[in-house]
């Protein structure tokens, strides 16, 4: 079995700050990490490898420094890693990204057919959840999103049974390989890297593919040209027209303060007292 896991290197969004005066992103010192959602996909792929035997290839599109994300994946136990990197990809939106990744996966297939493609549920920087479905449609793979559990895999019949998170419940779906699975967060827990795999990751001769190596001929499908969406404006959230009415705290006991607040609030929003009363009852 051959499994491809798509991962992305993202800035650790928890550490992004906006400059208070210029409203620009302060990038300096923000560490790059493997998109946390992708780790659930990678771990699930490694579990299938442990159980059924598989070659796990990790694929990443990004700038040259994204190689760190791929080495991390090797240290967890992935077999191969390919970085698709080219200036021509700059400005790609999800449609252009899925085109580039699908081309790269087709190239990977030339070596060994792919049975399952894994992706994270979404990224923490783009948050779109669109690249996984995009790859599936472009490659005509059965799409399985928000997968919480792989219940069964029959490699002879080439059938897979999974639990998919749906609105208000779980769908148990059976489909045929090849398929694309996006894993739900919390569905598993990433293993620790072994010492042997860490050494391997450090020495691993990473493959770097430019657009030609990834089999992309039509440059109108990638980068800004291949992206229907255009960012027309980036801006900091505006404060509401009025600031909060600050209940004066100077020289006041918390009790007095609270009573004053409630009195003010119920005068201005008479229905709210009613609502709270109903709710508490």
């Amino acid at each position: 079995m051959h499994i491809v896991v798509c991962i992305k290197q993202v800035p650790d969004s928890a550490q992004i700050r906006v400059h208070p005066v210029t409203n620009t992103i302060m990038r300096q010192g923000v560490p790059a990490i493997v998109n946390p959602y992708d780790l659930f996909a990678l771990e699930e792929a490694l579990r299938l490898k442990d159980k059924y035997g598989a070659r796990v290839t990790v694929l990443c599109m990004g700038p040259p420094q994204a190689e760190a994300a791929l080495r991390k994946a090797i240290s967890f136990g992935a077999d191969d890693a390919i970085l698709v990197t080219d200036r021509a990809f700059a400005g790609s939106d999800t449609l252009a990204t899925s085109f580039a990744l699908a081309s790269a996966i087709r190239k990977i297939q030339e070596d060994m057919p792919v049975d399952i493609v894994f992706a994270g549920k979404q990224t923490i920087d783009g948050d779109t959840a669109q690249v996984g479905p995009g790859i599936a449609k472009r490659m005509d793979l059965q799409l399985l999103t928000y997968v919480a559990k792989i219940a069964d895999l029959d490699l002879n019949k080439r059938e897979i049974v999974i639990h998919r998170r749906a609105e208000g419940g779980v769908q148990v779906l059976k489909t045929k390989l090849p398929c694309l699975i996006t894993m739900l967060e919390g569905s598993n827990e990433m293993r620790f890297a072994t010492m042997a795999n860490m050494f391997r990751a450090a020495r691993y001769p990473l493959k770097q593919w430019d657009k030609d190596a990834a089999g992309i001929e039509d440059v109108t499908k990638i980068g800004l040209k291949g992206s229907p969406t255009i960012v027309s404006k980036v801006f900091a959230p505006q404060p509401k027209s009025q600031r909060a009415e600050i209940i004066d705290c100077e020289s006041r006991e918390p009790k007095d303060l609270s009573v004053t607040l409630l009195a003010k609030m119920f005068t201005r929003y008479p229905n709210l007292a009613e609502e709270i009363g109903k709710n508490a009852a």
């Binding site: 969004s13 992103i25 923490i124 920087d125 948050d127 969406t229 255009i230 980036v234 801006f235």
Partner: peptide
């Protein structure tokens, strides 16, 4: 929201 929610962006599909 973009950049992990620290900014907003307006997107058009022309």
């Amino acid at each position: 929201p973009t950049f992990g929610g620290s900014l907003l962006c307006t997107i058009v599909t022309l």
